[in-house]
């Protein structure tokens, strides 16, 4: 099933600001539109490919998974994606490596490359860490989330998931609600969805959604009132409150829930066929209620499953296989 958004109608990505190894994925802001289309197409093909064929696609290729920050689904799905394709993985975490001894990010990258890593997947708490790494190594770097900046593989798997349920991204009304200021998922989604002509509404209180957010991409609307944002929505994407990034800012949780929690009642404001998404990890009872998370409109579990497909496509692209 090819993506229905016609590439020629989609806007072009801004030119990437510096060279990185071919097959790298640093952000969606600069990823060419054709590449996005190709990655989604490839993921759909992989969904139909038998397991024994998959395992012959990257036999013995070495993928380093460098995780400076806690992660469940991204780490596991990148690792399973690599192993599904027959690649060999090595997971490096900050607490179990020389990173703890003070080794710099660039030296860590150079070391991984010298040991034979042919691609580096990196998750890091600092925005820009993936592009810093990409400047210092000659193997492809895949950004698995850098600080508050971008989470491009999540943006791609979200687009994949939406297109499983909706015909086209063009004209689609997508509401992204919650802690947008601290969310790399929101930024990646906003870039991709805007590029393919979706009408994206960002929704949240000023402390979690600065006014400057609307300048991120074309076709972005800011809306403080959740009910108004939900009107006519085709997809509702909820974000976690990132307590670890609030940096001293005290959020009144009761007020937040009163204003922005997705409840069954609020969901009825959206279109009947609206889908409910969440990049995880989700806190039931905070950003959304359990009945919505487990309800018929929820595609949250699908998102996780699609993550493996999209990440397989990304690894194949990195190895040009």
């Amino acid at each position: 099933m090819p993506p229905r958004s016609k590439p020629k109608r989609a806007k072009a990505a801004p030119a990437p600001p510096f060279a990185s190894a071919p097959g790298s994925l640093l952000d969606l802001e600069h990823l060419p539109t054709q590449d996005i289309t190709d990655i989604l197409k490839s993921a759909r093909r992989l969904a139909k490919t038998p397991r024994d064929l998959l395992s012959k696609m990257l036999p013995g290729r070495r993928v380093a998974l460098l995780f400076y920050e806690a992660s469940t689904r991204t780490r596991v799905s990148f690792e399973f994606a690599a192993k599904n394709l027959g690649a060999v993985t090595s997971v490096v975490t900050a607490s179990s490596s020389s990173i703890e001894k003070g080794e710099s990010l660039t030296d860590t990258g150079i070391t991984l490359e010298a040991t034979g890593a042919e691609a580096i997947v990196i998750r890091h708490p600092s925005s820009g860490a993936a592009s810093l790494m990409a400047r210092h190594v000659s193997v492809p770097v895949l950004n698995a989330g850098d600080g508050m900046h971008e989470h491009p593989s999540q943006g791609l798997l979200d687009a994949y998931t939406i297109l499983e349920h909706k015909k086209d991204l063009r004209g689609l009304r997508v509401v992204i609600t919650g802690d947008i200021q601290h969310s790399r998922v929101a930024r990646s989604n906003a870039h991709l969805l805007s590029r393919f002509g979706a009408k994206v509404t960002l929704c949240g209180p000023p402390a979690l959604l600065p006014g400057s957010a609307s300048a991120l991409a074309p076709n972005l609307t800011l809306e403080r009132d959740f009910a108004r944002a939900l009107r006519g929505a085709d997809a509702v994407m909820m974000l976690r409150i990132q307590k670890e990034r609030l940096a001293g800012f005290n959020l009144n949780v009761d007020e937040y829930i009163a204003g922005y929690q997705l409840t069954a009642e609020r969901l009825r404001i959206a279109r009947k066929d609206a889908i409910v998404m969440h990049p995880g990890p989700m806190i039931r009872g905070l950003e959304l209620t359990a009945d919505v998370a487990d309800g018929p409109q929820s595609v949250i579990a699908e998102q996780v499953g699609n993550g493996v497909l999209v990440r397989m496509a990304l690894l194949l692209r990195a190895f040009k296989a």
Partner: peptide
């Protein structure tokens, strides 16, 4: 200014840096 590495504004938001 705690933890801020760049001016507050659209560029800070785009880069995911505290402004």
């Amino acid at each position: 200014s705690h933890g801020c590495a760049i001016n507050a504004g659209p560029t800070a938001f785009r880069l995911g840096l505290r402004g």
